[in-house]
């Protein structure tokens, strides 16, 4: 035998089946239908490795898109799209006396990195806008597009306040993160959080994640990062306009718009009644004006 001595370190698996409820060991959570699950993304520990992007593409069999250079630092995917369900944003700050100033404060003061994803909103505007029922809420309180029902109308695209949902030019259907619905059904945590080497993306039961995030914010405040806050938890920025809360929420250290997040996202359905009313009032005003002009002409 001339095997390399390290070969014994990588012996093949002798498991004859999947580990039942594997998420207990990888994420410390048992995945059960009827409970709310989500992501807590702590941007202060994101190193921009894009393992989440790769894991998402690998598991979901998604093709690479936006071929070419974006011209935006280390960002090669550019934005969330029909084929990119995780997007690591690289924000180079110009604070601390300049972009490449030599005296920067700790905690990624020069660079902000964030792995963006579908927020799986509690009151999901995309779901409310979908006329076919293709977008539904799963037993894990996540929001998923059923590909065999989607007719590609695209109503969900402008309804999403975060610009997450996109219609593919190739198959004509709406696509977005499924929070690895198929993996959850098999007792596996989502591919992106499992691949995250720094636990910047944490998967778990929503109430646990929110409690964990609150502790982390307190810890950061104690360490001198007073700018740390949560985006998407109940009552926090990002959970505005009737969204209640986001199942995928974030710990940020700068204003939401710096990360390309809306400051105060709202549900599109909130605007239906005012829009309808203003339209009816406009028609009534125009009809009144027209009848006034025509009647004055007759005189």
């Amino acid at each position: 035998m001339n095997d390399h001595p390290r070969i014994s370190d990588f012996s093949g698996s002798d498991l004859d089946r999947m580990i039942p409820d594997e998420s207990r060991f990888t994420a410390g959570v048992l995945i059960e239908p009827g409970k709310s699950y989500g992501f807590f993304t702590d941007t202060t520990v994101c190193i921009g490795c894009k393992a989440c992007e790769v894991a998402c593409k690998e598991w979901n069999n998604l093709p690479a898109d936006h071929i070419g250079l974006t011209g935006q630092s280390f960002d090669n995917t550019g934005e969330l799209s029909a084929n990119t369900w995780r997007h690591v944003a690289f924000v180079e700050k110009s604070g601390c006396g300049g972009v490449r100033d030599n005296s920067e404060a700790p905690y990624q003061s020069g660079w902000l990195m964030l792995s963006d994803v579908c927020k799986h909103c509690h009151n999901a505007p995309c779901l409310e806008a979908c006329p076919t029922g293709a977008i539904f809420r799963t037993e894990f309180d996540t929001v998923v597009v059923q590909q065999d029902i989607c007719n590609g109308c695209g109503y969900c695209v402008p309804a999403c306040p975060f610009g997450v949902v996109a219609v593919s030019e190739n198959d004509g259907k709406a696509h977005k993160c499924t929070l690895c619905y198929d993996r959850l059904k098999g007792g596996l945590e989502p591919a992106c959080s499992k691949a995250c080497p720094t636990d910047s993306i944490q998967f778990g039961e929503l109430s646990d994640l929110q409690a964990r995030a609150a502790v982390r914010v307190e810890q950061l405040h104690g360490q001198g990062v007073g700018s740390a806050y949560l985006y998407g938890t109940p009552g926090a920025p990002g959970a505005t306009g009737g969204l209640e809360h986001l199942n995928a929420f974030f710990l940020l250290t700068d204003r939401p718009e710096v990360y390309n997040f809306p400051v105060a996202p709202t549900r599109a359905s909130n605007r239906v009644a005012p829009s309808l009313l203003s339209g009816l009032l406009t028609v009534a005003a125009l009809a009144t004006a027209a009848s006034f002009i025509l009647s004055s002409r007759d005189r």
Partner: peptide, 19 residues
């Protein structure tokens, strides 16, 4: 296979992505 996406492995063992 994932939704309407699939991977085709050709006779040479090279995999290709299709929608």
């Amino acid at each position: 296979v994932q939704e309407s996406r699939f991977q085709l492995t050709d006779e040479a063992g090279v995999s290709h992505l299709f929608t």
